[in-house]
Design a protein around this nucleic acid. Structure first.
Length: 662
DNA sequence: GAAATAGAACAT
DNA sequence: TGTTCTATTTCA
């Protein structure tokens, strides 16, 4: 017997091994096996089984799983993701099963005959340790033992597709406010769990959205709600895993990895605010959880519901093409309800505009909370030397540096590297440094000085956990006391504060998103504005815009026309969702070497029929290295299949699927 | 991803 | 011609 094994390394092909006779009976597709690779031992997934033998192949060293952890649908989902994201299958499979999976610890042995009775009720982990893996596999194969998990008490068997109730696969966009969405979700969940199904609900983040929804769901569904993938809670995670796998009637909440969680049949998937960037997994395997969830619903033939007040453009495109159904409960804001103040040099440090302190002060005097959105999180995001005119750049990657006053460091926005701020230009040593593009930290300082009597809370992606857990929201269910008005200052993270409620919402430099957010800028602006209003429920809205950068507000005031217009623009410009973008990067110390590899890649892509879609390469010097960047713009109907995966045959090539900014 | 190996650069 | 450091290839 020969098996083809996918390993978690950046190589797109599977490696073949022969199977010693004693393992042959145990081998099934998608089981994990240990194999020799070079001079180490790796765990990989069996992705193919052949009869016959080949003496030239090395032998597998052992069989890890008693059952395959994947069923057909999860396997096809992984295979699809591997192609779609041009990522080797082994890396996807490794991600798709729970991290640090310790199934054996939570499985107990059930004796099925007399001479195994001493093992009855003992954990599989212990039995494996005392009897050895091969002996246990043998007993199981002879049907002398079986397994059940400690949480549900139900037998742990292969994931089989139960015919059961066949559901209608349906893709729905629920366009409406947070209260309407919640009501709709509760109705759907009740229906589904009453029918014995499980519901998977994806939420944009753990600390704020997760907390908010968890609380409401637990109130209604009690112990049948759990988080999958909560940080540091291995046991809870496994409990959710087993419940979802072998039982019905549960609501499983998660963010990214939950999109791959094995779920019993008769499922329903809900994705809340899918436009949130938090669904993008950037570490290791790059993917977007809602895209995976959508494909999964298709493969498993289960309904999926996207709820939002400002959904991603892709979904609105799906409505136009008849792939999505829409439930439209949208509420539009009126232009005349938004007060606009134009100012010069809004993002350059200096005195806050008089109207600004006046308006904030007015709201506070009436005893209401105020939320102030600003697009950047640090003190300032753009430093440059007034003498030699050089902007401050990261020494490692060449990315722009921003300044954090509190810790007096410069942070690279591209690679997160931080260095101490020396108060002089690294180029010419001049001390004439210009700060511009102020952010949340800067405004926080200014507000502290102007409104000493108020509590001022900074809300960014980094502080969100602290804010939600901390004293600012110690009674998340009750709005903050009017006697103690609070000013929340922050980035889009503000739109996660579902419970505070504000009298006044100010967007300070919202139009800057146009320059920050690449080709998605207008879409992003709409989503930021709508989600802030959705979560914070302001009585009044006020925009402070820079005179020179100001934008027309009218196009944002009607959902339908906004999306149709934006889709039209993207189509003309040949941007997503009408094309898919892949960023291909090559980095070499030697300029000529880089050029040669780029040429090889271009020739290969040409041969594969992608030649016409290449832009670039753009050459950038990064420290001592040369970086070559190419953009592949592939029309949506074009299949990429194996084409891009084969780029892993050239080493030193990095592929980034769907880069947000190019 | 990382070890083996081929290649370049430098010294003897 | 040996030594050391770096870039490239290959793994079953």
């Amino acid at each position: 017997m020969i098996v083809h094994v996918s390993l978690a390394i950046p190589i797109s092909k599977a490696f073949s091994y022969s199977v010693p006779r004693q393992f042959e009976l145990f081998i099934k597709l998608y089981m994990r096996v240990t194999v020799p690779f070079r001079n180490r031992v790796l765990t990989g997934y069996v992705v193919g089984v052949d009869n016959g033998s080949d003496d030239a192949l090395k032998e597998i060293l052992g069989v890890v799983d008693i059952f395959p952890l994947f069923n057909e649908s999860l396997a096809s989902l992984s295979l699809w993701a591997s192609h779609y994201y041009a990522t080797p299958l082994g890396l996807i499979l490794k991600y798709a099963v729970p991290l640090n999976l310790q199934i054996e610890q939570y499985l107990l042995v059930k004796s099925l005959c007399d001479h195994t009775s001493s093992l009855n009720g003992i954990s599989l982990k212990k039995v494996l340790r005392s009897a050895g893996r091969d002996a246990v596999l043998n007993l199981y194969h002879k049907r002398e033992i079986a397994f059940y998990d400690v949480f549900t008490g139900k037998p742990f068997t292969s994931l089989v597709q139960e015919p059961g109730q066949v559901q209608k696969h349906d893709k729905i966009l629920y366009l409406g406010s947070i209260d309407d969405r919640m009501e709709h979700y509760l109705m759907l969940i009740s229906q589904h769990i009453a029918g014995g199904g499980n519901v998977l609900m994806l939420l944009p983040d753990y600390y704020a959205s997760g907390r908010y929804y968890y609380k409401i769901l637990v109130e209604k569904f009690k112990g049948n709600v759990s988080w999958y993938g909560s940080p540091g809670k291995a046991k809870a995670r496994m409990e959710t895993y087993f419940k979802a796998r072998s039982d019905g009637g549960f609501v499983i909440l998660g963010n990214k990895s939950a999109a791959f969680l094995p779920l019993l049949n008769n499922g329903l998937i809900i994705v809340e605010r899918s436009e949130g960037d938090e669904y993008r997994n950037e570490e290791g395997v790059k993917f977007n959880a809602w895209i995976i969830a959508l494909k999964r619903a298709e493969i498993e033939n289960i309904p999926i519901v996207f709820g939002s007040i400002a959904p991603p453009l892709e979904i609105y495109k799906g409505i136009g093409e008849g792939k999505f159904r829409i439930i439209d409960k949208s509420v539009s804001i009126k232009r005349e309800d938004i007060h606009i103040v134009m100012k010069k040099n809004l993002s350059i440090p200096g005195k806050l505009p008089g109207e600004f302190t006046e308006i904030v002060g007015g709201a506070i005097a009436k005893g209401g909370n105020v939320a102030i959105f600003t697009p950047r999180k640090d003190y300032v995001s753009h430093l440059f030397c007034l003498e030699c005119k050089t902007p401050f750049q990261c020494t490692i990657c060449g990315g722009p540096l921003s300044y954090q006053k509190r810790s007096n460091v410069l942070i690279c926005s591209a690679c997160d590297k931080s260095i101490n701020y020396e108060e002089k230009c690294p180029h010419c040593n001049s001390e004439l440094i210009r700060f511009s593009q102020t952010g949340a930290e800067y405004l926080e300082g200014k507000l502290n000085a102007a409104f000493a009597q108020c509590r001022i809370v900074k809300v960014t992606g980094e502080t969100l956990e602290e804010v939600v857990k901390g004293e600012a929201l110690d009674e998340p269910d009750e709005p903050l006391k009017p006697l103690n008005p609070t000013i929340f200052i922050g980035t889009q993270a503000l739109s996660k504060l579902y419970t505070v409620g504000v009298k006044l919402l100010i967007l300070y430099g919202w139009e800057e998103l146009l320059r920050i957010s690449g080709y998605r800028a207008t879409e992003k602006m709409y989503q930021v504005l709508m989600n802030l209003i959705d979560a914070l429920r302001p009585e009044r809205i006020c925009l402070f815009m820079d005179e020179k950068k100001s934008v027309e507000l009218a196009p944002f005031m009607n959902v339908r026309s906004f999306y149709l217009n934006e889709l039209q623009k993207r189509k003309l410009a040949e941007y997503p969702p009408y094309v898919r973008l892949f960023l291909i990067e090559v980095e070499k110390k030697n300029r000529e070497m880089g050029r040669r590899l780029v040429k090889k890649i271009q020739d290969f892509l040409e041969k594969e029929g992608f030649g016409q879609y290449i832009t670039g390469p753009l050459i950038q010097k990064r420290g001592y290295r040369y970086q070559y960047k190419m953009i592949l713009k592939i029309p949506e109907n074009e299949s990429i299949s194996q084409g891009l995966l084969a780029l892993y045959n050239f080493s030193g090539v990095r592929i980034e699927p769907d880069p947000p900014i190019i």
